[in-house]
């Protein structure tokens, strides 16, 4: 799980990137990629698709960085782009195939247990999109409820409730898969 000091983007870094400082742009990409990936995965349910969309989102966001008027709310701005691009990618994919969230496994050989990954992907499919966003940001990326609330524009209480329900559902789903 990423360290709290490196996973979010401070406003000063955003401002330096907006000023065109190449190193700041690179640092921004590095810091935000995992969280964008979590948002994309919450919508797309496939690791490879989430990676493709993450790359697109990062490039589009950097290109349009000038339109982020409030660097203190950079993540909310970035995640809005991520959601929009993920939805577009989902529409394109639905046109392309009808496999859906329970698609083929795309894990790199030897990296993780493919059965575990498949089971988790299937279990995530039982959650709502916002529950997937919250549980992935919190339990995978280490975001606090306060950070999630600011980034996806829900209250901290709503974030807690979504997390609690998501975990309960995931446990139930996984218990069915692995009795």
């Amino acid at each position: 799980m990423p360290d709290a000091s490196t996973r979010t983007a401070p406003a000063s870094l955003v401002r330096r990137a907006q000023a065109g400082e190449a190193q700041a742009v690179a640092d921004l990409v590095q810091r935000c990629a995992r969280a964008v990936h979590a948002i994309a995965l919450a919508h797309l349910g496939r690791i490879a698709d989430a990676e493709d969309t993450t790359q697109t989102v990062l490039l589009v966001a950097i290109e349009r960085l000038g339109s982020c008027r409030d660097p203190d709310r950079f993540e909310a701005w970035l995640f809005a782009i991520a959601r929009n691009r993920a939805r577009r990618a989902l529409i394109r994919r639905r046109l392309r195939d009808v496999i859906g969230i329970d698609g083929p496994d795309d894990a790199a050989p030897g990296e993780v247990d493919p059965d575990t990954r498949r089971a988790l992907i299937r279990a995530l499919g039982a959650l709502s999109t916002v529950q997937r966003e919250v549980v992935l940001l919190h339990d995978l990326e280490g975001y606090t409820h306060a950070e999630i609330a600011g980034a996806i524009r829900i209250s901290e209480e709503a974030s807690r409730q979504h997390l609690s329900r998501a975990r309960r559902t995931l446990r139930a789903q996984l218990a069915e898969e692995i009795p």
């Binding site: 065109g20 190449a22 190193q23 742009v25 690179a26 640092d27 921004l28 990409v29 590095q30 990629a33 995992r34 990936h37 995965l41 690791i47 989430a50 990676e51 993450t54 790359q55 990062l58 490039l59 950097i62 290109e63 349009r64 960085l65 000038g66 339109s67 894990a107 790199a108 990296e111 993780v112 247990d113 575990t116 990954r117 988790l120 992907i121 279990a123 995530l124 549980v135 992935l136 339990d139 995978l140 975990r167 995931l170 446990r171 996984l174």
Partner: peptide, 29 residues
């Protein structure tokens, strides 16, 4: 629940510096 298996793949994380450079090289809109 342990969601570690859903983390971005190593190959993707290794690509991030290149993505960062590509982003930095893009002219602003």
């Amino acid at each position: 629940v342990d969601l570690g298996a859903l983390a971005p793949r190593r190959a993707f994380l290794d690509r991030l510096p290149a993505i960062g450079r590509q982003a930095a090289d893009r002219p602003p809109e």
